[in-house]
Write a protein that binds this DNA or RNA. Structure first.
Lengths: 171, 171
DNA sequence: AGGAGATGTTTTAAGCTTAAAGTAATCCGG
DNA sequence: CCGGATTACTTTAAGCTTAAAACATCTCCT
């Protein structure tokens, strides 16, 4: 355990009474604020996708992955990139096949695997939605100037590393 | 529209080719990184709550709100604070009543409303879980020093304002 | 070749989530 | 005090999500 630096003592004194070593309220507040930001943005994107394009966010996300992979992706690859379970992707693909946005073909080299790719319809619709989506996101971050956005980007990069380290540490 | 400052020109030149005014890839990347951080943390918390306490995150969240409100909360108040729909809360409360973690009583002043509060069991279990939860969160942010955490906190505060402004602007 | 283990996918059961519509009680202006 | 608007809550239908178990195919070792 490090003892607090002089700067930390000052900050402590400024913010509140002496801090005991077990207290992690600041980290908790940070997490709650992070969650609030994400929930707000995600909720608004969901709402607009639904309202203007009658599509759900998970379907949009799946199409986004396929748009970046012109040769198609297997269900496993999709599941890994989307950070969701395999069974989840099975259902999403099923519904997107029904609506004609994606197509499945069995892999030539592995009869277990299926390659999923966007249909022409799927690609065209996705491109339209993606353009609007990009505008929406930019609009929501517009209140932040460019330099703060870059600071935030950097700090979130460090956060991601920190979290991954904590997650993989206890496996 | 502002024309780019000298510093912005330098940054543009450093990062990639000349930027056209419609391009919002940076904001998109920022949003995706924010989402990744939240997804990672939230997924791990979900997993641990399930594994160690056999509880879901929504139930934990609901109990957290009740723990902060000793006199109980109506379903509407819960729904507002948790930022989820009314119907959602109806179901969560129903299941938590079944397991004996919360209790409902009709408001003395408004026969439509019900006040939900933690039972003794619910409060005891919540306190145990909350302590572990706080540790987990601290652990995941531990790779970040205190000053970067404070920077992040501040930037997320500005982000929240920016997003709220964008969301309420088009209502 | 044969079989163990790995990998790709689907199914199942349970729970979460929402929007929209429906029911019940309250509030408030006339 | 009465009727319309609002507020509190529930129900419904649809979709998302997961963990776990089941199934299919492949890989690789001997």
């Amino acid at each position: 355990m490090d003892s607090p630096s002089p700067l930390e003592r000052v900050l402590d004194a400024e913010t509140k009474a002496a801090e005991n070593p077990q207290d992690h309220r600041d980290e908790l507040r940070l997490w709650l604020r992070l969650l609030t930001c994400t929930t707000l943005i995600e909720g608004e994107i969901r709402r607009r996708l639904r309202e203007r394009f009658d599509v759900t966010l998970p379907r949009f996300d799946l199409m986004a992955q396929l748009d970046k992979a012109p040769d198609g992706l297997t269900l496993s690859a999709l599941s890994k990139r989307m950070m969701v379970s395999n069974g989840n992707v099975t259902g999403l693909v099923e519904r997107l096949v029904e609506t004609g946005h994606v197509a499945r073909r069995t892999s030539a080299t592995d009869r277990r695997a299926q390659l999923i790719s966007l249909t022409e319809l799927g690609r065209a619709e996705f491109r339209t939605m993606a353009a609007a989506h990009e505008e929406w996101v930019a609009e929501m971050f517009a209140g932040l100037g460019r330099p703060p956005r870059e600071d935030l980007m950097r700090l979130l990069g460090r956060t991601k590393s920190s979290v991954r380290a904590a997650i993989t540490a206890d496996i």
